[in-house]
Design a protein around this nucleic acid. Sequence first.
DNA 1: ATGCAGCTAAACATTA
DNA 2: CTAATGTTTAGCTGCA
Length: 640
Amino acid sequence: MMVESATETIRTTPSNQNGSDGGGREGGSNGDTNGEISPVDLLHLQQQQALQAARQFILQQATGLNSPSSNEVKQSPVQVPVSMAMMTPQMITPQQMQQILSPPQLQALLQQQQALMLQQVTHTLTHTGSSQQQQLGNKQLAFQQQLIQMQQLQQQHILNLQRQGLVSLQPGQGAVPIQSLQQAMCPTDLQQLWKDVTGVQSTEEVMKHEGLDLTTNSSNTTSYSASKVSPQIPHHPLPNGQNSVHTPKRDSSTHEEHTASHPLYGHGECKWPGCEALCEDMGQFIKHLNSEHALDDRSTAQCRVQMQVVQQLEIQLAKESERLQAMMTHLHMRPSEPKPFNQPLNLASTMSLSKRETEGFPEGLPHPPTSAATPITPMRQGPSVISSSSLHGVGHIRRRNSDKFCTPIASELAQNCEFYKNADVRPPFTYASLIRHAILEAPDRQLTLNEIYNWFTRMFAYFRRNTATWKNAVRHNLSLHKCFVRVENVKGAVWTVDEVEYQKRRPPKMTGSPTLVKNIISGLGFGSLNASYQAALAESSLGLLNSTTLMNNSTGASLNMLHIGHDDVSSTVEQVNSNGSCSPGLSPQQYGHQIHVKEEPAEMEEDSRPMSLMASVTQNLSMPGDERDMEEELPTEELE
DNA sequence: ATGCAGCTAAACATTA
DNA sequence: CTAATGTTTAGCTGCA
């Protein structure tokens, strides 16, 4: 989900755009052909083309141009009342617009454009002969409906963004810093906005002209290729597409544009999709534009197709961006940030895969790629993103290790708290460890069953589904494990943790052998990298370890290895962990009781999160101890 | 091969 | 009676 991290997305986008721009420009400047346009360039160019066309329309209409001549005027931004948008010259690129406008402003812009168009339509209608009034009236009606649809669409989009946490703005809200906008909105979102605009415009055009019904608005389901091939387009789609590509906005922005440039005109050719008509000069082009590409069914259809193209490309871009994020996540591993997203996801998923899930459940697989979808989602992933893996819920993941000793779930959780809250990823802890953690976090170290349930759902997105299953498991664990003591209370029964029993559960585990770390690393199987990492490890730098972990995560094999290592390690370090890190991430409430930690050995989830690993490692390292410590720390728990 | 630990599922009892 | 809460048993899987 989606969730994707906005940041990453954003980052990606710019780069893509830039890259495309750069490429596009060069190629585009030539105007030529296209021989080898990369998908990105294509996307970029087409989007720009569509956007510009849309912008033009708005401007034109705003200026009152029903007449052809007015079209020519398009270049002057002039008159448009009000909004920045209006003030914005055509030449401004979407990116620029994005930078200039804050989310609220963008929204306002869209609304204004719509309103403006509506007004114009109305105006036009008013001045039209009575004979046509009826017809126009119908058109107007249709147009208005379309506008409404567009608005709804936009609102919906904005809401989605807000929901995803990508955008915090609210329609009426004050201006938002540009930066926030950029951060808040992922490229696709911005594109979507533009798309909406474009769509509106096209719609308007249509309306203006013949009353076509653009019912299509946005709903086209056709695929990119399909749309391109769509019968509606008389011209040669393919060539056009390419041309269009070439016509990058950049052209417009460049020198040519200033004087007499038109987004749809470049290198002496009409860049209208499917049209390669040669035009000696701007005047001729304008003429051609008005005669050949006036508002009619065909143009409308082409516009729609273009919209679809843009849409498809946006989707593609989003996917690629997600992939990139996932890749970066694996390779970069940002140590410090708690962002759950990245690593945790991967880790968790990977871990599970490596372990058992692989066999039975697909959980692991989907993650990497999917996770991105979230989105990110965040939130997505995400959110959502992540979700895929967890869905199965079923699988048992095993956590093996951790439970055995107590674990420093706290630190883990603390670090990846947000991640688990948003990502539909199964936590790598055992039910027992989670329950214990929940209880210990409570102010009085006791919780009712329902409160435990609530904690699970609050802390883990994963436990917001399949409630029957995990709740049953929770009850089962409470009853089964002696460490959970049921205490009759005035209000009813509450559950407490008997630390002694809990620790008894698992024997102090094995001692970590000094070699563990080494094994782990080697297990990861990094070639040369390993060497360096190992060296780093030698130095006992946690950071390195973290990275290593991440790296591992990326590869299944490595994961397994890692996993193993953890198990071994699992034992003791908890104290360290508990002391330090645990609480940080936890919510205030949770905070309270981390103290206990000491008692338990620190276990970490095995496989799971790199973060935790890192943390633990760090702790261990920090200690005078050696590998042994490491081992202990490494332990991870899985839960399932 | 065996035992342990953990997970899921389900049956059943008790209580609110 | 229903739903929530507890208890217990069974079958599986992974790991040591």
